[in-house]
Amino acid sequence: MKFSEEFEKRFADMLTHYPTKRSCLVPTLLYAQDEAGYLSDEVIAELAGRLELTELDVRNVISYYSMLTTKPRGQYNVQVCTNIACMLRGGEELLEHCKKKLGIGHKGTTPDGQFSLEEVECIGACSWAPAVQVNYDFHENLTVEKMDKVLAGYQEKK
């Protein structure tokens, strides 16, 4: 299992931050997922080994956190918030629009692997609702038209 230099540097650094090795697990899982695409058996085994945990320990943690996944997602994970503040300003309509546009449902992935779609809970953009996160990028004050532009932008990026 090979991670980037940046990952290794951060990981080595984090190990010095806590009195127990295990403490760096949650952020490390997310950074590992960002590089590997998802938390595969191989990634889980690797991190369990490094942190002196069982694979079960690691899996128990993964299953708790909503951003962590053991299944591959699309290159761009479109996360539409439909929680109260977004709902009041059209979050549900945005989600429906994305479903139609991408031809996939909640937690689905397009056949070409470019997009995944997810209905998510509050992402902390309530004053700029409705909001969507694509991977880590926030897109706010959206309308259906603006959403189309956002998706088109990622489509071009490939």
Binding site: T20, R22, S23, C24, L25, V26, P27, L29, L30, L51, V61, Y64, Y65, S66, M67, L68, E121, C122
Partner: peptide, 19 residues
């Protein structure tokens, strides 16, 4: 963190920080 409202509760926050 990695996505969890509950972790904003102080004791759950400590559990999360402990991995």
């Amino acid at each position: 963190g990695a996505g969890a409202y509950e972790v904003g509760e102080e004791s759950a926050l400590m559990e999360s920080l402990e991995g």
